[in-house]
């Protein structure tokens, strides 16, 4: 139990005005939080509880009312965890999310770096760069289908550049399929990373950069030793949010491949969808969703921890810089 040692004279009775202000802030916080809490309690919590119920009860849509379902304890979780198809789906989802997140980040970061200083026509480029994000994923998928087929324009361009006819089987070869949809994800969601990184660059304090420049540091060194460390929390945020979003990608994969060719694109959202809405195995689908949710929570907690560490490191760095100044 922690104790607070009061230093005589250090705690002055709060002025009525301060008390009132603190109360106002508290009220404001609750006013903001209340709808969210109500939403969670009214909508999300019942769904989560229902899913939890299904995860521990073996129920199929063909077997009467769901409240009559048989309690099976952890059996369904065991079934899911020993299902190789579930394991492969997780691996595919992780590979897809990792690959597309890195792709989105690298391009988004590069564009943000080029765009963060004002220049003529900047607004136009900004609009152009965010257009992909405004395109509905299903439209991205169908458009890609027209572009990526064997005799399609993309292969035509590749052939013209190479001078030899190339027919890259973007959509039909199981070795290419996941990569193809990963490239689409990168195209679709790079603007997201771009916007976050642009905000990050814009919010960088000018003083350390100016100080480094005065001390004669090269642009590369300023970038590597000043800007990049200061941007680390934003980078982690961009990577984490994009990774979580990519783990849940469904519309493009479903519209283009429906898990195929073979099972090359059967990611976890596809497998959960098939299990719940094609096989109508609601209990197994619920258990899988819970396990994936746990995985995501672990990833989020790790990310929060890393973000905190980065923030502390930056605070320490800023404090040291202030002391030096």
């Amino acid at each position: 139990m922690s104790s607070v040692v009061a230093v005589p004279g250090s705690v002055a009775p709060a002025a009525p005005r301060e008390v009132s202000r603190a109360r106002g802030i508290r009220r404001f916080k609750w006013a903001i939080l209340a709808p969210l809490i109500a939403l969670f309690a009214g909508v999300l919590l019942p769904v989560l509880l229902l899913q939890l119920y299904f995860s521990f009860h073996q129920w199929s849509v063909y077997l009467g009312s769901w409240w009559d379902a048989e309690w099976v304890g952890l059996d369904i979780f065991k079934e899911v965890l020993t299902d190789p198809r579930f394991g492969w789906s997780i691996i595919r989802s992780l590979a897809f999310a990792l690959g597309s997140t890195i792709g989105c980040f690298l391009i988004g970061f590069g564009l943000a770096y080029l765009m963060h200083k004002p220049f003529r026509g900047q607004a136009l480029y900004y609009i152009l760069f965010i257009i992909p994000m405004l395109t509905v994923p299903i439209v991205v998928a169908y458009t890609a289908e027209m572009l990526l087929y064997d005799a399609g324009p993309i292969n035509d361009i590749i052939s013209r550049i190479g001078g030899v006819e190339h027919k890259v089987p973007f959509l039909t070869n199981p070795d290419f399929a996941l990569t193809s949809v990963m490239l689409l994800e990168v195209w679709n969601w790079t603007p997201f990373s771009f916007i976050i990184m642009l905000a990050g660059f814009s919010s960088l304090p000018k003083e350390p950069i100016e100080a480094a420049r005065i001390l004669g540091a090269s642009t590369w060194r300023i970038f590597w030793e000043v800007q990049l460390p200061l941007l680390r929390p934003v980078i982690f945020l961009a990577l984490t949010l994009r990774f979580l979003e990519a783990m849940a990608e469904f519309p493009k994969i479903w519209a283009l491949f429906q898990g195929g060719p073979g099972s090359a694109t059967e990611t976890i959202p596809v497998y959960i969808f098939l299990t719940t809405w094609q096989y109508f195995e609601v209990s197994k689908g619920a258990a899988m969703s819970y396990l994936v949710m746990m995985l995501m929570i672990v990833i989020v907690l790790l990310a929060i921890r890393l973000l905190r560490r980065e923030k502390h490191a930056i605070d320490a760095m800023t404090a040291a810089a202030s002391r030096t100044a």
């Binding site: 195929g260 073979g262 099972s263 090359a264």
Partner: peptide, 10 residues
């Protein structure tokens, strides 16, 4: 699923 996997060589 299995037919498709065999057809594409998986």
């Amino acid at each position: 699923k299995h037919l498709s996997e065999a057809y594409v060589g998986q």
